[in-house]
Structure formats: C-alpha cells, structure tokens
Design a protein around this nucleic acid. Sequence first.
DNA 1: GTCGAATTCGGTAACGTTATGGCGGTCAGC
DNA 2: GCTGACCGCCATAACGTTACCGAATTCGAC
Lengths: 332, 332
Amino acid sequence: MANLKQIAAELSLSVTTVSRALKDGPEVLPSTIARVKEAAKRVGYLPNHHGRALKTGRTQTLTAVLPMETRDHLSDLLKLPLIEGMTLAARQAGYSLSIYSTTPDDDPVESVQRQLQARSADGLIITRLVSADPRVKLLLDRGMPFVAFGRTDLDIAYPYVDVDNEQIAYEATRRLMDIGCRRIALQLLVPEDQTSAMRLSGYGRAMAEAGIPIDQSLIGHGMFTMESSAGWFDRLLASSDPSTGLACANELGLLGALHALGKRGLTPGRDVHIVTRDSTRLARFLPAKIGVHFVDMAGVGRKLIEVLESRIINPLGPVETVLVQGRFEPAE
Amino acid sequence: MANLKQIAAELSLSVTTVSRALKDGPEVLPSTIARVKEAAKRVGYLPNHHGRALKTGRTQTLTAVLPMETRDHLSDLLKLPLIEGMTLAARQAGYSLSIYSTTPDDDPVESVQRQLQARSADGLIITRLVSADPRVKLLLDRGMPFVAFGRTDLDIAYPYVDVDNEQIAYEATRRLMDIGCRRIALQLLVPEDQTSAMRLSGYGRAMAEAGIPIDQSLIGHGMFTMESSAGWFDRLLASSDPSTGLACANELGLLGALHALGKRGLTPGRDVHIVTRDSTRLARFLPAKIGVHFVDMAGVGRKLIEVLESRIINPLGPVETVLVQGRFEPAE
DNA sequence: GTCGAATTCGGTAACGTTATGGCGGTCAGC
DNA sequence: GCTGACCGCCATAACGTTACCGAATTCGAC
C-alpha cells in the first residue's frame, strides 16, 4: 500500500528525495533523512520489490536448483540442513531464496537455461555436479553469478563449496585400520558423481599407505538406497572372507548396513566396525557403536550464500572455493 | 535480454499487439499470433517477471513461512518431503516457491506482517499453528490469500490442510489393543500445539471404547528430541508396571524409544509393541518390527499449493479444508 | 561585490509490462 | 449508398522505483 509517492506527498518532498533519504544519500539533509525515516516507519513502508528490480535489474533473490527424489525422501536427508542454512543466510544478507525443484525427468542444463532467460534471480546455486558439467561453462559464458555445491573436473576456475570427501574417506579408512581392520569395505554413490571419485581416492590413499592391496569386491557402487546397501553388505558378510570394517556413504547406507547386520545377529562395534558420514545426527541416535564424520551442512549452506553474494557484488573478483572438512566423532 | 519491444520492432508491430498475441488475445489475427510466437521462440523470449508484477500486481510467487530448528535437524525430517511436494506443485501451477525461514527467535506474527508489507507473494503458506493463532485473523483481515498447514481453535472459516492426527492416534491405540496391550504409552510433542491435543483426543477415544482408564503417567509431553524421548521411555520401562505398547509421535520419538529399549536388552515387537507416525520411511529402514502410520507429506505439500491456488484465483469462493489420513502398515 | 563551488533538493525519463481508449478499414444490413 | 458494427491494430499511460541532470540556495574566496 504505502509507497514513496505517499510519503513524499505527506512531507511535501519529491519522490526522489524520499528515495535518497531512505538509503542515507549524502545529498540529503540529515534532518530530512530523519523526517523521512520516521514517516516511512509510521506508515509501514517497505520498498516494492518489483519496482526496484525493474529499475535496477537486481532482484534480491537467489535461486537454488535442487534435484528432488520423488521416490525416496530419506536419501536426501542432508538436504534439509542445507536448505535451512541457505535460507537463513540469504535472509540475513537481504536476499530471499527461491527453490527450483527438478525431478529426475528434468534436464539439468535446460533448468539452468530457463533460470537464465527468466533472469529473475541475481544468482544461482547449482548442486549435484557431474563430470565435465556443462552448466558451469554455460553460466560462466552468460556472466550469471553462481556457486556450485560440489566440484567437476573442468579446467576452468569457478566458485564452489564442497565437502572434502577425499579427506573424509581417507580418515575413515585410517580410523578403521587403527582399530585393527584390514578388510575394509567402502560404499559409493552414483558412479559418475564426483563425490564417489573423491571418496575412492581417499580410500585408496589410506590403503596404499598401509600397504594393503585393494580388493574390488569390497567396493560397493550405487549405494543410494537402503535396499541396495542392505543387499550388498549382506552378500559381503556371506562371503568366505567378509569385511570387518565398513565406511558408509551416508545415513541411508548406514541404515542398510545395520539392517544386514541385524539379520545375521551381528553387532556393530564388535563384529564389524562402522564409520559413516552424518549430517543429521541420525547415527548418534541409533543404539549402536558407530564412528561418525559429522559434516555441517547448514554451514555449507551458509558458505554457499556467502560465496555467491561476494560473486554478485564483485563479478570480476577472485574466484572463491571452499572445502569443508568433516569432524570425526569416535564411536564411544 | 529479449523483450517485447525487440520483437515488436523486428516484426514492425506495436508492443501492445505482441503482448496480446503471446497470450492468444482474440483481437489479434491468427496469422499475426503465429508470426509473433515464432519470433518469440527464436529470440528466446521469456516475459520479465518484474515488469509484469509491477503492472498487474500479481507476482506468480508463493511464500512458505517455515520455522527452522537450528539445533536439531532431525526433528524436522518430515519437512523435507513437504518442501518437495510444495516446490514441485508450485512449479507445475506456474508459480515459484520462495522459502522464508524463521528461527525460534523470530516472532511468527511479525514474520507474516513483513510478508504482507513486502507484498512480494501472491499467497502465503503458514505452518505450525498454535491455539488461537493470531496470524489467521491478520491474513483474513488483510485479504491476503493463504493456506495453513495445521489447524487452530478459532471460530473463523479459513483454508487449511492438516493431518488427521486424532484418527491416527485412535487407530494406533486400537492397533496396540488388538495385539493385546492394555498399558499403552503415548508420546506428545509441544503441549500448546494443536497436534498434541488431537493425538490425545484420539488416544482417549480408543481407551474409552475399550473401557481402559487413562493413566497420566503413560503420557509423555515434550517428546520432540531424541534425548527426551529416550529418557522418558527409560523411566517408564523402569517403573513397577511398565507399558507394553507405545504410540510414538514421529521418527525422532521412535529413535529415542528404541534407544531406551536397546539399553535394557528389550526387543520391539516382542517385549514392547510400537506404532509410530512416519513420513520418511525411516521406520521401515530400521531392523525392528514396528507398525507404521505412513503420512504422505509430499501429498500434503501438493494439497497446500492446490488449495492456495484456488484461493488466489477465487478469493471469495468457498473455503477449502483438507484432512489427510494416514495409511497404516503393520509391522510384518 | 562578484564568481564559483558546494549543498540540497526537484523534475524527467526509463526499466518491461499490461489496460484502456481510440483509429482506420472492412463488411453486412437496410 | 449510408449507417453501424466489428475487426485488427496502435499510442498512451501507468505500476514503483532509481539514475541523471538541472535548479535554487548558501557560502567562502578573491
């Protein structure tokens, strides 16, 4: 309801002066600024978002392109603290966060293109990067400020925030070795995902340091559902030389593994040692001894907004990249 | 980049005609419409959101005001499928969904007031209603289209979508009775929450039907963290006359109860029968026999958008209210 | 006393869109 | 052949904001 024109009329000022006064323009008398601000507060003035956006070209909104699992909501557990972190940080920075959900049917590149054409956001957050992700080049070419959650293997500098999956997998493997495990199983997610490559690399590094040859049968791919994790680990336990240590990909993989253990009457922390990634504290809530790499996803969300904001403010500035570490919390 | 003016210049038409042609205006020659649409497609035209919003007053965005738990992300598990359902349904209806996160420090009424003044959304989704929620009256008075997730005890008609917690608690209690339980424990969340009142009512109805007097010591309040749930249930199990059946409030309460059981070496489904609400399928992933009331939160999210949309289209139409049922899935 | 600079404000135009009134031209009806 | 209706299109204005240029006043400096 309330707009600049009303305030201007009430104070017998021009719309221009009111506009300037509200942003502490140096060309306005301090006493006038005070009068304008008082009147604005009294009538409950809030700037019209669209008028400003139309004029300045800036919208004060950020859009996060998030793939949604329509089948299995549990697999995206870590997305909730991520959303929380992003929304709160965005609000604090004066932006509103819009969530653009994509289904598995949606083409990721087309989704980004739509956002580009609609130009309704000042910046974009893209997630789940794949190898040689075409979206990175597209956004760089168009000059659209963005930040990626995750990395890709392109020879271009671009801003990203990622979890140091290599180091986490390395530490998890080392941890299991320290307890005495030698046959250590590793869960990986989608093969083409960069995350899995990183985890495999960290696992390999630890194994090489200990001089243990890698047994491909101990490495499980596609562990992104409870069922696949349970089935895979059950087969592993049934083999002639089962594993004594397991590094889980996430909470879901952990639940599957526990399921397989329970079926055979085995106890985690005694028969098999388990280390997992956890962002929701789910592992801590389970009645089982499990080592946890806690990854602060809300912090990742805040970092994403922070990097994106500095990108918007200074598009030609240095490209920021952030690598978030996990914090290990032993089983007991 | 591309706007109406460019298309108009290219085709030697007026901006008005181009605008009308793109929405199949009856005053435009069909052949002209075809020419305009072809040109629009060729240059990749997408209407400028803010220009349109400024002119029409409609923004094509919906805002969901969501409280975020900054301490304990797991307690909000069910919010993820809710967000998924809302974002996808909003996108399909031609709206974009903006998420306005509030912290426990934020005043809920002030948050809504801000949204009202900013008038950057065509409709609002409010959640976690309290008794005599002042936001309902505020939004009705201001004529802002909205829909509530949850109910309040006001004598005003307003659009809402809610889970039938009364019926779910009733069925859960009945179910436990059918198995043979008589001392049935009930978990409740925040006392002032309408959800808890409903659950208590359903529980009481089932107990009354069976002629079992209600033992207040079996009713646990404030079960919104794993720790409180575990502590409460542990004390219950330690009492001289422990409960043999438990109706959990949600996934988190379930995890706490399982924790307490595990500590005492008791087995769910044998020593104590458990029924819980579940929207994430977490209970199904646990290696324990647990009866589940599945509540389709993604469906709730879609319904919310649906109701809100019809509210926006026809603000004076009948007030829609939706009560979503749970689907019971027995332990085995 | 004059001039230039600084200070403080106002008017105008523009961002991209749509609503509105109007303007030629065609065509049927009498 | 004239009137009126209608068709297809255009020009203008407006939504609320800000950028830009200009205007009026004051003040110090020479």
